[in-house]
Nucleic acid binder design. Structure first.
Lengths: 215, 215
DNA sequence: GTCTATATAGGGATAGAC
DNA sequence: GTCTATCCCTATATAGAC
């Protein structure tokens, strides 16, 4: 085999490798996010990826390692987006508007993630520990500082920044995490539910700003 | 065997039966609520109940039926409490205060239930269907009517009652459902977390009332 | 009703050919 | 890297004695 052929083969192998690994991760994502760690079956993930079950072990050694790859990826992305949307350089009230609009949109596009993360962390609280490691907490600190400044300037009523942050995130996340329950309680069809969440992009920030703003 | 002995035996059997069945349900509750349907092991439930594994099948036939008994019980109780606390005869704003205080307390006393319900309904949305059957939706309808009345009286700003209800429930439930995540994000120890939730009994209703009240 | 022992299947993981 | 065949353990469920 001459050198050029050799390089081509290696290249093909590398591309193939990456593609398969990615296919597996995507398939595993779909299955794990709905069925969870213990409800998911390796066979189903293999079928979903269009490959053989043995491949899963070839690439990820064990179910637990595959799951962890999926979970870490989903959780890291999700929390880093919180920071990203909080990091925009705007005054507090506009920052809240910006955050809610973008985060609700993100949730609409990834509607299984919140319940998935809540479920898995509930069953195994240690999993969340590995998510926050290198990540600086600067965005949250900056936001807390923004809140305290706005309070001292008399722009908003005195409020515990921690409570406010949880209120904001909860108002965005809860309706998505509890989707099937809310659809049932409010008797909403799928499109009505989606419209309901879409509406929240504007409504939630109005609600929050009303709650804290000094008029 | 004379009749009195017979009655005694039946009585004993009946008492024993009810006690064992209840023990199993309590044990299953503890295990299922943390580990979920697929993470839980019948052996662990048996150990937790201090009885033999075969007993579980004697009383509940299958794991699925046992799980369903636990889930239905937890979910029915949880949603009926929402109605109960919304049904109190008070003006809207006081009703919201009353609801938040009592519902947050209920959540503190049953802190595993929200994540448990969210998880299981996420994995199997059909489960929620059996929860709402005989139950009239009168309390919710009454509350929606209260909201619309308060709007037309100019007591609160115009608001979609459905959005408001989800806001209220979300503000109460989310911080409990996402407990381990929130403890991590806010760097709270167990007691600090409990104090954080305790504080919400007052803070959340103030937040909501500020958001909707016409000043 | 409660136990011990066991049947049976399902699923994660590996061996080995290609 | 990818497949087929298979190992082997675990977990639900049942049989049957007491």
């Amino acid at each position: 085999m001459d050198e050029i052929t050799n390089i081509k083969e290696n290249f093909k192998a590398e591309v193939s490798h990456h593609s398969t690994e990615k296919d597996i991760l995507e398939a595993a994502k779909r299955v794990f996010q709905i069925k969870g760690m213990y409800g998911a079956r390796m066979q189903e993930i293999a079928d979903e990826a269009g490959i053989n079950k043995a491949m899963l072990h070839y690439y990820f050694r064990s179910k637990d390692k595959l799951f962890d790859a999926v979970f870490q990826d989903a959780a890291r992305n999700f929390f880093s987006k919180i920071r990203e949307y909080l990091n925009v350089d705007k005054p507090l009230l506009e920052k809240i508007e910006y955050f809610v609009e973008n985060y609700v949109e993100l949730l609409l596009q990834n509607s299984y993630i919140p319940a998935f993360i809540i479920s898995e962390v509930h069953q195994n609280p240690d999993r969340i520990k590995n998510v926050f490691m290198e990540s600086g907490v600067s965005a949250e600190m900056q936001f807390i500082s923004d809140i305290n400044t706005a309070v001292s300037l008399g722009i908003i009523h005195p409020v515990d920044p921690k409570q406010l942050i949880i209120n904001i995130i909860g108002l965005c996340v809860f309706p998505v995490a509890a989707k099937p329950i809310i659809k049932t309680i409010l008797s909403l069809k799928e499109e009505e539910y989606l419209e309901f969440i879409e509406t929240r992009k504007k409504e939630v920030s109005k609600f929050i700003i009303n709650a804290i703003k000094v008029h």
